[in-house]
Structures are given as structure tokens and as C-alpha cells.
């Protein structure tokens, strides 16, 4: 059953300066569950800013964001942090794992913050790391993993808390083609088999080719919205 997960209304972000920059300009957007959406556009088109506002990391200058019916603009910072913890999974361009924790501990980290029972944690971490193909690397620290492997741990971490959706900001930007293909396979499978909603910002054609919906941003406005 289709359900609206993300909804933006007249969402705008303006960076004040000598010349104000309208990074995102009156964007209306609806994303449903189980979508595999790529937000594309040239550098400076507002992809990351849009994703940050959807993820509650940035506040809009005007307009609003609703996630599963919750209006983010009314939340204070602590409420936003708590909301992100419970509802949103993040995958960043530079992996951003915690270097002093192993792959298992990194994946488990958010569940620990959520105070999930140890038994459930252990089962879920093992399942997720096997799903991303890192069952054998559970006790390796990020420095012992390749870029592609680190990004797969980041995906496992993003999914560990069973979020409403995963936001991935240029997840393949630092990966070679083999790692990119591998990561995309994993995410596509998780989307199709487990119904996980993914929203990417990217300008990587390989990601765009695999997306089932492509939203193109130019100068902070949606130029096109193509469903495949």
C-alpha cells in the first residue's frame, strides 16, 4: 500500500550574504514508501541542501517538510535529533564511520542509542552485515576496510534502526566502479525485497541509471521529475 513518507511544501533555503543565494527555491515534493529516488543536478543545484532539510539537518528559510506526517519545522534541535534517530537513516559521501569502533559496533551504534535489547541487536547486526556482504569483516575497524566496504557498513548502520527511509548524499562519489555497482546492487535489493525507501542525491550516472524515479534540480528548483 502506497504511503506518503516525505512531503515538502514551498520549501526554500536562502543563504544570506552580499548577494543572497537561493539554494532551494519553493520546492514541492512528495516521496512515497518503497521508492528508489535519485535527486540529480549539477554542483550547486541544491541537492545536498534539499536532502539536509528533508533529513532535519538544516532548517528551511520558508516552507515546510513533513516526514510520515510529522512537521519538522516545529521541532527544536533536541526533538530533531531524536526524530532523526528514530525515523531516518543516513549514508554520507565520505562514509563517516566511527573510526574507533568495529564494523559490528558501528552498525550496532544507533540501536544502542535507541536502547534496543542486546539479543535483537546482535541478530540484526549479523543479518545486516551479511546482507551487505561483510559477514566476515564484522570485527574490522574502518581503517582495515576498503572505501566500498566502509560505505556498505554505513548502509548497514543506516538500516539498523529500521528507519522510515534512508537519505544518501552522493554515496558513490568516492567509490570505484566495482564498489559502486556492488553498493547499488545491495541497495536495490534492499529496496525491492524489504521495501526500504531510498532517496539519493547524486550526479553519478551509474546511480541515476538504477533509480526508479529521477528528480532533477536546477538552481534550487525542480526542473523535471521522471518516474521509470
Amino acid at each position: 500500500m502506497k504511503q506518503l513518507v516525505i512531503e515538502t511544501k514551498q520549501l526554500s533555503k536562502t543563504y544570506e550574504g552580499v548577494v543572497p543565494v537561493h539554494a532551494v527555491n519553493e520546492v514541492d515534493l512528495e516521496i512515497e514508501n518503497n521508492e528508489f529516488t535519485a535527486i540529480v543536478g549539477p554542483s550547486g543545484s541544491g541537492k545536498t541542501t534539499l536532502l539536509n532539510m528533508i533529513g532535519g539537518l538544516d532548517r528551511p528559510t520558508s516552507g515546510g517538510v513533513k516526514v510520515n506526517g510529522h512537521e519538522l519545522s516545529g521541532m527544536n534541535e533536541n526533538e530533531l535529533i531524536d526524530f532523526r534517530l528514530k525515523h531516518i537513516g543516513f549514508v554520507f559521501q565520505s562514509y563517516n564511520l566511527i573510526p574507533v569502533l568495529t564494523a559490528k559496533e558501528n552498525t550496532e551504534f544507533i540501536m544502542l542509542l535507541q536502547k534496543i535489547d542486546k539479543k535483537i541487536r546482535d541478530e540484526r547486526v549479523e543479518k545486516l552485515l551479511h546482507e551487505v556482504g561483510l559477514g566476515e569483516k564484522m570485527n574490522s575497524r574502518p581503517a582495515q576496510l576498503s572505501g566500498g566496504q566502509q560505505q556498505r557498513v554505513a548502509v548497514a548502520r543506516a538500516l539498523a534502526s529500521k528507519p522510515d527511509f534512508v537519505l544518501a548524499d552522493e554515496p558513490t562519489a568516492n567509490l570505484d566502479s566495482h564498489s559502486t555497482a556492488n553498493l547499488l546492487d545491495i541497495m536495490a535489493r534492499l529496496n525491492q525485497e524489504e521495501g526500504i525507501t531510498f532517496v539519493f542525491s547524486t550526479h553519478d550516472q551509474r546511480v541515476i541509471d538504477r533509480a526508479r524515479r529521477v528528480i532533477t534540480l536546477v538552481d534550487g528548483k525542480i526542473e523535471s521529475d521522471e518516474r521509470r
Partner: peptide
């Protein structure tokens, strides 16, 4: 800085 930003992004509270 980036790591702490990430921790806050994924849900580590200000108190933590």
C-alpha cells in the same frame, strides 16, 4: 569535526 557532525546527524543527542 566531521565525525562529531555525523554523530549528531545520526541521532547522538547534544547531552551525549
Amino acid at each position: 569535526t566531521r565525525e562529531i557532525g555525523m554523530l549528531k546527524a545520526v541521532g547522538l543527542s547534544r547531552g551525549r
